[in-house]
């Protein structure tokens, strides 16, 4: 019975959280408050773990909450609940797209969607930059705009090194995980 409820709660989060993993956080807060399965302090810890492990954040959090509530079966059931609405909706959208792929109207819509998608991904990347490398702060004093950059210089240096390395002809075809692993080692060595 609890497993059914677990599935249903995460199905709902998966159905209504639009815009990626971070959008599931308010739903998880709500689940915690209504069911008493976990406290908001537990949730903070789960978010920290989800951010520090590979995989999509929403999925990581569902697995963690599921395990906390109902052990290994709970982690699987919560994850399946979260992804079930996605799968159903995308299968429907995909079937539609396959049928109308070459329709001029659909093509025209994608002509506008693609650059927006690129811009949104760039914006998400900028979000990571703000967390990891620099913290821009604006303040207005009289007629002057003061911009204060609180920079993580070691991090910036590492980012610059990765930027240069991924452009070297011999190295640019390496799997991205190679750079991730090396950066993790550098992070531990330098205490980033």
């Amino acid at each position: 019975m609890m497993y059914l409820r677990l599935f249903f709660e995460f199905f709902r989060a998966g159905l209504f959280a639009v815009g990626g993993g971070l959008a599931t956080i308010p739903f998880l807060t709500d689940i915690g408050q209504r069911t008493g399965w976990f406290t908001s302090a537990d949730l903070t810890n789960m978010i920290a773990v989800s951010e520090s492990t590979p995989g999509p954040m929403g999925v990581n959090m569902a697995t963690y909450v599921g395990y906390t509530v109902g052990g290994v079966p709970g982690s699987v059931i919560a994850t399946l609940g979260l992804i079930a609405p996605s799968i159903l909706i995308i299968l429907a959208v995909g079937a539609f797209l396959n049928k109308f792929r070459n329709n001029p109207t659909v093509e025209a819509v994608f002509y506008g969607l693609r650059p927006a998608s690129t811009g949104l991904i760039a914006a998400a990347g900028w979000g990571v930059v703000c967390i990891a490398l620099i913290t821009p702060q604006w303040s207005v004093s009289g007629r002057n705009l003061l911009v204060n950059l609180d920079a993580n210089w070691m991090g910036l240096l590492l980012a610059l090194a990765v930027l240069i390395c991924t452009r070297l002809p011999k190295l640019k075809d390496l799997h991205p995980v190679v750079w991730i692993a090396l950066s993790a080692v550098v992070g531990i060595a330098l205490g980033l």
Binding site: V129, N152, G155, A159
Partner: peptide, 12 residues
């Protein structure tokens, strides 16, 4: 993860 975040910025 301090290191990985710096790297992920560049990969994105």
């Amino acid at each position: 993860f301090g290191g990985i975040r710096a790297c992920v910025c560049v990969l994105i």
